[in-house]
Design a protein around this nucleic acid. Structure first.
Length: 751
DNA sequence: TATCATACTTAGTATTGGGTAA
DNA sequence: TTACCCAATACTAAGTATGATA
């Protein structure tokens, strides 16, 4: 699939938009990670995938030819030797501008739509209504969702029946055992046609039922034994529970890793009785095999359950979902994303995580902070327990929080992406990116100028920003050493993460990046850069050790303060959003061929999406069944080919026959055969397209960019323009998340 | 000014479940 | 009807960003 993405024309002097992380397959393979003492996960050698034919679209024409003395003139060379510790620097006196909550463009157009679903909020409703709702209903009635029609009409009368139904739902007494037709028949609330809060207030009314806790531990049946040093040993329930966490993971590679085992064993021992502790001193002597078998059998049994049993479970889950899976926020019943508390288990950090294997403890009501309206019906803690705290903070969006014991970080229960509160934010994110589009040229000119600055910190800032813009690198916050896997982003790059080649593969000023980014996904890329950048990098690296910071005068907060001054609301990650979206838009323009049929157009869409995924380095482990499924598909294709040649042969003989006979019947037979050939050809084409798509996607994850970086209005507009059903691009969940875009974007939408 | 705390987005992987081929 | 496959969903870790605090 070479040639299916080009560089971004919008970028000045920024060569390749699509990074090369997936290129250089062979080099990649032979290369060992150099990172000092962090052995880079072999297991994660995902990047070496087969798509080696992505072209490098580096744009050389803008190379800076000028000779320039790269001497920094602020006499600060001495500082370069400083190790990261010393990286304190003056930060610009940044006045922190608040992002305007209302900085949205207004919807492109508003459609009038009939009534909608709404939640009947309780008595408080009126007083809690969002300001923008004040125009309507004055009684304590569930507010109806506003649509343009009724905004104008302000009629709030109808839907009494819906109302009562909904109320029931809320209580979890769903009447209709079967859910209503899968059709999504319910009218949806168009929050995007309403005004937004402006003052940092996130809601005025919030009511929910609190979290669902993990089920209590069920001790193993007595026939399932644990052996220590070859002898049966009965464990206390506490120790047994933790043992089962390990036993369940026996087939996982984690349990072979030293750190994992060490951390597990240490935490496990904490749960043991004194006797157990005295006896169990060596993990190697522990035999969890029977436990492991037991859980396997259990999961088999679950699979083998009868239809009725499965149905029963499904219904139970549905009941829980209806009861705990929704909240009332302002006047609407909104879906909660993660209403279940994370169950206890062993921590599975990604990459070389120093804490992998540690015990993630069970969360109890006493750990839980509830957030809801003062005047809502507060969630009840389970009998005999109490919440840690109930608070009423409407400046935040979470409903429940607790502090997790591995990193000490706070976890939250929040709303689903389809909710107003998430949707508005998402929309706003893309609007910020679109504002960047308007001033990106100026910003690029500025950082190019700054490459020449006499101040080291400014040069570093400018080079880092260039990387963030050109390569879509993440900002790179500092991390506490030893607490997490050793990963970096732009500002935290170390000298050991890049290599400079004055000349390589016929190109000048090449920088080779090789580091582990978020989730310990490897970023490997070899790109030509502008001469000034190259010279600056040489300067930044002078007299430094491999583990010194490349940008020792920069961190994300300095960078973001600077960006804030360039554009209101601008931060490093906006560049990723902007470049991802603009790339999609361009690629779609470039790749879509009006002549082609729908499957071919969709392939083009996926390729545009893929260009973005590559830019953002969104990788995935090739599915375990990848080879097999590819083979299956190939078998199908072969069969289809055979079928086609058969059909062609038949057509030929039918034609010959018709030539001889010249009668109607044989003519008709020819037509029929012709149609058959056509049909088979089409089917074959479809299969081949599918195979191409799948192969190209082997190690690339499209979902992340689709969900987080691509302005959905671009996709919607594309669908509308080419008559592609939006369902071909977005599944149900995605359509819910992007309902605002689907509703408001028309085919002329320009990012 | 550096560090910490908090809130929220972005991320890859594991599991589920529904459709389809055998 | 069953087995299998894959898309969808669930899960939760790991980022970014920023305001408060020391």
């Amino acid at each position: 699939m070479s040639g299916d993405h080009s560089h971004n024309e919008d970028q000045i002097d920024c060569g390749s938009r699509v990074n090369d992380s997936h290129k250089h397959k062979d080099k990649y393979k032979e290369k060992e990670h150099k990172h000092k003492d962090h052995k880079k996960d072999k297991e994660r050698e995902k990047s070496k995938h087969g798509n080696s034919d992505y072209k490098d679209f580096s744009d050389k024409k803008h190379r800076d030819k000028e000779k320039e003395k790269m001497k920094h003139k602020d006499g600060s060379t001495d500082k370069y030797k400083d190790k990261h510790k010393e990286k304190k620097m003056k930060s610009l006196d940044g006045k922190v501008k608040k992002e305007k909550e209302n900085g949205f463009a207004s919807p492109q157009h508003m459609k009038s739509e009939p009534e909608d679903d709404f939640y009947h909020s309780p008595k408080y409703e009126k007083s809690l209504k969002r300001e923008r709702d004040d125009d309507n209903d004055s009684e304590f009635k569930p507010k109806k969702i506003k649509t343009e029609n009724d905004k104008k009409a302000k009629k709030r009368k109808q839907d009494e029946d819906i109302k009562s139904k909904k109320t029931k739902n809320k209580k979890g007494e769903v009447t209709d055992g079967k859910k209503k037709a899968k059709k999504e028949p319910e009218e949806k609330w168009k929050w995007w046609e309403e005004e937004r809060y402006t003052d940092g207030v996130k809601w005025k009314f919030l009511e929910h039922k609190g979290p669902v806790f993990a089920p209590p531990y069920e001790p193993l049946p007595s026939n399932v034994k644990f052996y220590y040093d070859g002898k049966v040993m009965r464990l206390s329930p506490e120790a047994e529970e933790v043992a089962t966490f390990f036993a369940k993971m026996l087939d996982h590679e984690y349990t072979t890793k030293d750190i994992f085992r060490k951390n597990f064993f240490k935490d496990w021992r904490k749960e043991m009785t004194a006797e157990e502790k005295a006896k169990i001193t060596d993990l190697k002597k522990c035999n969890f095999a029977e436990m492991n078998e037991f859980f396997k059998a259990q999961s088999e049994a679950r699979k083998a359950m009868t239809k009725e049993e499965k149905q029963k479970i499904k219904e139970d889950n549905e009941r829980i979902l209806q009861e705990y899976g929704f909240c009332i926020m302002d006047n609407h019943r909104e879906r909660i994303a993660n209403f279940r508390i994370e169950p206890p288990g062993l921590f599975r950090g990604r990459g070389d995580h120093p804490k992998m294997g540690m015990l993630k403890r069970r969360i109890r009501p006493e750990d839980i902070i509830i957030n809801c309206s003062k005047d809502s019906k507060h969630p009840e803690p389970p009998p005999g327990t109490r919440w840690k705290e109930v608070r009423h903070d409407n400046k935040v969006t979470w409903l429940v929080s607790w502090t997790e014991n591995i990193q000490g970080s706070i976890k939250y229960i929040m709303l689903n992406p389809s909710s107003r509160i998430k949707g508005e934010k998402d929309w706003q994110k893309y609007e910020t990116a679109r504002r960047l589009k308007k001033c990106v040229d100026r910003i690029r000119n500025q950082y190019r100028e700054d490459w020449k600055s006499k101040e080291m910190r400014i040069r570093q800032r400018a080079v880092a920003l260039y990387f963030i813009d050109k390569l879509a690198l993440r900002a790179g916050n500092e991390k506490e050493e030893g607490e997490t896997a050793d990963t970096v982003g732009c500002c935290s790059l170390r000298v050991e993460h890049i290599k400079l080649y004055p000349e390589s593969d016929g190109q000048e000023y090449v920088v080779e990046f090789d580091f582990l980014g978020k989730d310990s996904i490897r970023y490997y890329n070899k790109v030509p850069v502008e001469k000034r950048v190259f010279k600056n990098l040489q300067l930044f690296m002078e007299n430094k050790e491999p583990d010194d910071d490349l940008f020792d005068r920069l961190n994300t907060s300095i960078l973001n303060k600077h960006l804030q001054e360039l554009m209101d609301g601008l931060t490093a990650k906006v560049f990723r959003t902007y470049n991802a979206s603009i790339t999609l838009q361009q690629q779609l323009k470039e790749l879509t061929n009006a002549e082609e049929n729908i499957p071919a157009k969709i392939l083009s869409y996926n390729r545009a999406n893929r260009a973005v995924a590559i830019l953002c380095n969104h990788q995935r482990a090739p599915p375990k069944t990848f080879e097999k499924s590819m083979q299956n598909l190939q078998t199908k294709i072969d069969a289809k080919r055979d079928q086609l040649s058969d059909a062609k042969r038949e057509l030929k003989s039918a034609k010959a026959d018709a030539k001889v006979r010249k009668d109607e019947k044989s003519k008709k037979a020819v037509e029929t055969k012709k149609k058959a050939v056509q049909r088979i050809e089409e089917q074959l084409m479809k299969l081949e397209v599918q195979a191409t798509d799948r192969e190209e996607n082997k190690q690339i994850a499209l979902g992340t960019s689709k969900l987080n970086y691509l302005d959905p209005r671009i996709s919607v507009a594309w669908c509308k323009k080419w008559g592609i059903p939006v369902e071909k691009i977005y599944n149900k969940t995605q359509r819910e998340k992007f309902a605002w875009a689907i509703d408001m974007a028309d085919e002329d939408f320009e990012f």
